[in-house]
């Protein structure tokens, strides 16, 4: 059984890893925005599975609306939190750390909804608090953006604010 000390070591290692990717990215020219989009475009259909339309066109539209909502939310976060998220998306997008953190050999673009859902399910109760935190950040960002959207209210029985 892993001891608390092992957890701490792993936790610190992962934080270092994220930091290292943050620094490395400046030299290898990774684009933070592209990384973020790639990861989010895989996460959104998994997190909102069942709440998205099934017809391709409305589905694509709903996914891009959720993506835009998440990006607006991120833009309102403090610089420190934005940096932290940028490191996370970078680490998730880059192949070696994606394999390490998500256990995913293929790219996010190639991963199916079920595969992404399995990754998220694993993170929910993961022994690395870094990944539990990542799951919760994505949960909050994506579901918050989705249900901020008036288009989704009728479906859940919310009449919206009163008018006067």
């Amino acid at each position: 059984m892993a001891t608390r000390r092992d957890f701490l070591k792993l936790g610190a290692g992962s934080a270092l890893l994220l930091g290292a990717f943050g620094i490395a990215s400046r030299y290898v020219g990774r684009n933070g925005l592209d990384d973020r989009r790639e990861v989010l475009l895989a996460m959104i259909p998994a997190v909102l599975d069942g709440a998205l339309p099934s017809a391709p066109e409305p589905r694509a539209h709903a996914i891009s609306a959720a993506l835009a909502g998440v990006e607006t939310t991120i833009a309102g976060l403090t610089p420190a939190t934005q940096d932290e998220l940028a490191s996370l998306f970078l680490a998730l997008a880059a192949a070696p750390s994606r394999l390490l953190l998500a256990g995913l050999a293929k790219s996010w673009r190639e991963a199916g909804v079920d595969e992404v859902a399995a990754v998220l399910q694993g993170w929910r109760t993961h022994r690395l608090t870094l990944l539990q935190g990542a799951y919760q950040a994505l949960h909050k960002l994506i579901l918050g953006a989705a249900y901020a959207d008036e288009a989704r209210w009728a479906d859940i029985g919310y009449p919206g604010p009163p008018r006067f």
Binding site: G50, A51, L120, H139, A146, Y147, A148, R152, W153, I156
Partner: peptide
């Protein structure tokens, strides 16, 4: 909606049922 959606745990179908 936002406060509720972000407080309820789970994702995908599980979360959808809560909503």
């Amino acid at each position: 909606p936002v406060l509720f959606a972000t407080t309820m745990t789970g994702f995908g179908d599980e979360h959808r049922r809560r909503m």
